[in-house]
Design a protein around this nucleic acid. Structure first.
Lengths: 234, 234
DNA sequence: TACCAAAGGATTGGATGCAATCTTGAGATA
DNA sequence: TATCTCAAGATTGCATCCAATCCTTTGGTA
């Protein structure tokens, strides 16, 4: 396993920012951070530059890097962009037709979701399974579309602390059931090569998720780093 | 005007890559490049990291940076992604309603286009005006949507050598007339708050541009750096 | 001939020192 | 008191040096 300390530092820092261990708005001092991470300033500076380019940090020449504080609107807007991009992916897959591999993968992901929801109520033990399934489901469709830009751009929209697929989790059983039903319908639509329905099913699916997250922010169940409470995910 | 040599080097290198002065696939040697640019390897390496993050360079640990060679499909896919994103922007503006400023700006951009096309034939002297107008027109609509992600993601899709709005130019008068007619219809649709038509007018507008560029690549009028001829824009 | 191994040079990655810029705070002035 | 000035400390940016990794080439072996 050959890697460089720059990429390790980049990964670690990204994780710290995404999880909120480093707070939005915080200034990152190179000397201090480098020492804390056990490297010199050189690889750290490269990592900072990378994360700034990813949009997680803000950079001002001669003044250094600060953690970007996403506003509520940034998060909503991210979902809107993701919705049309993933809609494009679904439409593309429907038009091209799915490979057998993809169909099989999606079918087994659907089953995992069905199983997690089978109890008729929300069991916290099943949440991790469901969330992982959800991430993989969306990822699998994007991969199958084989549009490198959609892949890249969607990954980019996921780089928002507390708003990525990996962090967000439904907190209401009935919403999860409906959401997973969307997954079933989506696979059906794609299988039938129904481009239009595949497109709008996935767009609606993600737009609704955006509305839900917006509501959570409103209620204070999620904070973006700027609201007064300064709490993380409830 | 305070800036750092890192950002200057980044800008210069980006320009060199976008314009094809540095060829796709080419390996970038740090020592040599730094000397050529008159800086040390430190700011150069930061610039290289930035450009790699932007997608213009490919990086392999311990092996350095090479200029990314976009394949034909990458370019087509870029237009597909841009189409849905700009469609979202147009739809958003139509839904929100345009500010007076925006309406005025767009109207005067339309006039510039009308003027450039008024001769009834294609005058090379007017091409620059038209191209600039076209870039500003699209940019203005995106700005007016005020969705930071769309802005950012579209900028990203434009970072393809020879395929950005700034480089591409129609070479057929009748196509330009039709394309500019799209602009007129788009402003009309947005003014009437017709979300659906604004959306699909801009999508079609860009998808067609993508088809056109694809055809140009096919004909060898544009090369992506991988085709045998290794020519630039004709 | 084809393949493998090791040594030497070449290239990239990281640490350190110094210069340039910014920030802070004490003192002066209105 | 509020504001401005400027100097000292702090922080970032850049150049250089050394270490780690890669690449090439030469020689050997099956």
């Amino acid at each position: 396993m050959s890697t460089t300390s720059t990429v390790e530092v980049t990964t670690v820092l990204r994780e710290h920012i995404m999880s909120g261990q480093i707070h939005p708005g915080e200034k990152l001092q190179q000397q201090r951070l480098a020492q804390a991470l056990g490297v010199s300033r050189t690889p750290l500076r490269t990592a900072l530059a990378n994360l700034a380019q990813e949009g997680l940090l803000q950079y001002e020449p001669n003044r250094g890097y600060t953690v970007r504080a996403f506003k509520r609107k940034d998060i909503i807007d991210g979902f809107a962009a993701r919705a049309v991009l993933e809609g494009l992916a679904a439409a593309t897959v429907a038009r091209q037709g799915m490979s057998d591999d993809a169909l099989q993968d999606l079918a087994s992901l659907l089953t995992i979701g069905d199983t997690a929801l089978a109890k008729g109520r929300l069991d916290p033990d099943d949440l991790d399974d469901y969330r992982t399934m959800n991430v993989n489901f969306h990822q699998r469709i994007i991969e199958e579309a084989r549009n490198s830009w959609v892949e890249e751009l969607v990954r980019h929209t996921q780089l928002i602390p507390f708003a990525s697929n990996r962090m967000i989790v439904w907190q209401d059983y009935s919403i999860m059931v409906r959401s997973h039903d969307d997954h079933h319908r989506l696979v059906d639509a794609i299988s039938r090569r129904d481009v239009a329905r595949a497109d709008y099913l996935l767009r609606e699916h993600i737009n609704f998720a955006g509305d839900y997250v917006a509501k959570c922010i409103e209620d204070g169940r999620i904070t973006t780093g700027f609201s007064k409470h300064r709490r993380n995910i409830a």
